[in-house]
């Protein structure tokens, strides 16, 4: 069973703001799902290497030639706050 603090900590790491109702619901639900996936512990995976990519493709490189891309206006069209052709955000390090 996860404590309320543990669920809160995961939410904080994931940057998901949770209300207290959601926090309580996840506290009950997450352990059930974790128990479900822990069925894997029955499986002996000693000496088995993991697979991260299924079609055995190697890195693909290209010549460093510039190509047509989004215009500035297109790149900014979905931003909520734009100033002087840039996206405006809150300060990250020293928000005043």
């Amino acid at each position: 069973m996860l404590t309320k603090n543990e669920v809160g900590k995961i939410a904080e790491l994931a940057k998901i703001p949770l209300g207290s109702e959601e926090l309580s619901a996840f506290r009950l639900q997450l352990p059930k799902i974790i128990t479900f996936v822990e069925n894997l512990n029955k499986l002996d995976t000693k000496d088995i290497s993991p697979t991260f990519q299924v079609i055995s493709k190697k890195n693909e490189l290209r010549e460093d030639i510039s190509a047509e891309n989004l215009t500035r206006a297109q790149a900014l069209q979905n931003a909520k706050l734009v100033k002087d052709g840039y996206i405006k955000t809150k300060g990250v390090l020293d928000a005043k």
């Binding site: 996936v37 894997l40 995976t45 993991p50 697979t51």
Partner: peptide
Amino acid sequence: DYYLKAQKARTLVI
């Protein structure tokens, strides 16, 4: 315990 274990299980499925 989780992600790596699952990717090993994936190898067995393949």
